[in-house]
Structures are given as structure tokens and as C-alpha cells.
């Protein structure tokens, strides 16, 4: 059994590595998928011939494509992600400066969406077909129907401009984190609350819930210990699959709130055709998603004994 278990993990990790390779290839090829000379794309049409040649030299653009990839990827492993064309500084340094705010934003957004979504899902299931349940449905549809950039602007207008409770954009302490996090978090909360309700209803209908009640267990223990634990198992996948949207959302929301993180940096770098930066951020985001999926699988096997013992 242990052997089978190990081989499962070896296969799972190999699959992750293959995905990671594919992802790095896409990030690398971005520059080359755009028609025209990469050097001209990066520097624009008005640079000197010497500058173009320097760029070609710096990024080995005169070499065959596979070799260029090897240069690039070995650089990635050495922590050399190239230099930003805009800032003329190593990309890694620029990313280091901005990754903190982005992780803070994404972390708070995920925290809001997971806790609120799961809580509302449970409450809606327990109080099904009551006003509480209808309210949970209503608010979910409400948040899902509003595009994040519009919600962000609305928040800024009401709470920043009119009520002046929070700064209008930028990163000035904790208060400026609240609304960007809510903008992403509320939408994803809606995304989690519906399936959580469905999972809870399904679990609450199971015989084992009746059986633990028949033992004489308190209702709160029945819900928290037995129903919740079973209903959460499929939610792990839901959350892991949702991560790319959280990241995508944070890109838009960072721009709206002038949040100095990787998202807004990515947008400005795309506009400035700062390809080394774009490549690096894409690679980072993609790796984050790949790793999150691996972690979700790991968590699965911790929570669900059926997977732990058999697969």
C-alpha cells in the first residue's frame, strides 16, 4: 500500500513538473509570439541600432530559439530574470519590492471569500428556504453580477470620496487594504457560498448525519464536526481552481485602487512593453497556480481517509 501511495505521489509530482515546464515555455514565448523583431518590440521603433544590438546580445536573440529558452530558464534558476528595460534594474529586485502588497491583497481577499462564503453556505443550508437562505442567494447573485473594476470605483467613490473613511487609492496603512480586498473577496465569496450550500445540503441528507444524531450528539457538533468536515472536502478543489480568478481580479483591482503590487506593475509593464518583467510575472503567477493545485491535492489526502489509504 505504501508503494502504491508513493507511486501516486511520484506521478502527481511529475505531472506538476510537466505543467511547470509548459507554463515556462508559454511565458518565454510571449516575446516571440508577437510579430516582428523582439528587440524592436522591446525598445520601440526609435532606438539606435547599437541599442537594438545590445538588447539582442543581452537576451541572446541572435541564437536559435531552443538555446534562447535554455539561457532564459537557466537564468530563472539562478535568480536572474533579466533586467527591466524601463527601470534598467534586475527584474527580481522590482518583483521583490511589489510582491508583498500583492500577497497581502490576495491573502485578505481569499480570507474574506473563504470564511464568508463557507459561513453563508452553511447558514443557507441549515436555514434552507427561509429568508436567511434567500438573502444568501440574493447577495451572491448581487456580487457576482457586478464587474470588479466597477465595484472598486463605486467603493472608492462612496467610502473614499464622499464619506472619506478610507484613502482614495494608494497604500496608506491598513485602511487602504479594506476595499480592494472586499472588491475581490465579495465576488469570490459569492462563488464559494453556492456550492458550499449545495454540499452541506447533500451531506445533511446522508444517513451518517442521521446516525450521529441518533447517538445523541448535540446539533452544533453534528454540523461542525461531521457535516462541515465532509462538505469541505470538495470545496478544496473549488478554492484551488478559483485562485487564477483571484489573481486576475487582483490585477484589475490593483489598477483601480492604485495598489502598488505585482498586478498593477504587470499592467504598466505590458503597456511599456517591458517584456522581461512581463515574462517574469507571468511565470510567477502561473507557478503559484500550479503549486496551489498540488497543495490542494495534498490537503485532500490529509482530510479524506478514502484517498489517504487507497490511492
Amino acid at each position: 500500500m505504501a508503494g502504491r501511495k508513493r507511486s501516486f505521489w511520484i506521478r502527481r509530482i511529475v505531472r506538476t513538473l510537466v505543467t511547470a515546464f509548459g507554463v515556462s515555455l508559454v511565458a518565454f514565448l510571449i516575446l516571440h509570439l508577437t510579430p516582428g523583431d523582439p528587440a524592436k518590440i522591446m525598445l520601440g521603433p526609435y532606438a539606435s541600432e547599437a541599442a537594438y544590438e545590445a538588447i539582442r546580445e543581452r537576451y541572446h536573440l541572435n541564437e536559435p530559439l531552443p538555446l534562447q529558452y535554455l539561457y532564459w530558464i537557466s537564468g530563472v534558476f539562478r535568480g536572474d530574470l533579466g533586467d527591466s528595460i524601463r527601470y534598467n534594474r534586475p527584474v527580481l529586485e522590482l518583483i521583490k519590492d511589489r510582491i508583498g502588497p500583492t500577497l497581502a491583497l490576495m491573502g485578505s481577499a481569499l480570507f474574506i471569500s473563504i470564511t464568508l462564503g463557507i459561513f453563508l453556505g452553511i447558514v443557507a443550508a441549515i436555514k434552507r428556504n427561509t429568508p436567511i437562505d434567500y438573502f444568501a442567494t440574493f447577495q451572491a447573485v448581487f456580487w457576482l453580477s457586478i464587474p470588479p473594476f466597477w465595484l472598486g470605483i463605486l467603493f472608492l467613490y462612496i467610502f473614499g470620496l464622499q464619506l472619506r473613511w478610507v484613502p482614495i487609492g494608494g497604500m496608506v496603512g491598513f485602511t487602504s487594504l479594506i476595499f480592494p480586498a472586499l472588491t475581490i473577496g465579495l465576488r469570490d465569496e459569492a462563488w464559494f457560498a453556492r456550492p458550499m450550500r449545495a454540499e452541506m445540503l447533500e451531506v445533511l441528507n446522508q444517513d451518517y448525519i442521521k446516525a450521529v444524531k441518533a447517538k445523541g450528539l448535540k446539533y452544533s457538533s453534528v454540523i461542525v464536526k461531521h457535516a462541515l468536515r465532509n462538505a469541505l472536502i470538495p470545496m478544496i478543489t473549488m478554492i484551488a481552481l478559483r485562485l487564477p480568478w483571484v489573481i486576475g481580479g487582483s490585477v484589475v483591482v490593483e489598477v483601480v485602487f492604485s495598489w502598488g503590487g505585482l498586478g498593477s506593475f504587470l499592467v504598466s509593464s505590458v503597456l511599456a512593453r517591458d517584456y522581461p518583467v512581463v515574462q517574469a510575472i507571468l511565470l510567477l503567477i502561473a507557478m503559484l497556480v500550479v503549486v496551489a493545485n498540488l497543495v490542494a491535492d495534498l490537503l485532500y489526502s490529509v482530510i479524506d481517509p478514502r484517498i489517504r489509504k487507497e490511492s
Binding site: A211, G216, K218, N230, D304
Partner: peptide
Amino acid sequence: TERQFQREIRGKEVAMVFQDPASSLDPVFS
């Protein structure tokens, strides 16, 4: 009331075994 059932009857006075043993035990606990 539900609370009286839980405290005074279920398990303590009256217990119940169900039809399908496959689904009567919580799958995630030993």
C-alpha cells in the same frame, strides 16, 4: 423539543440502526 430529544432520548434511551450500512458511518472518521 429537539433539545429534549437530544438530551433525554437519542442514544441514551432510544438508538437507531439504518438500512444502508455503507452510508451510516461518517467516512472521514476512524
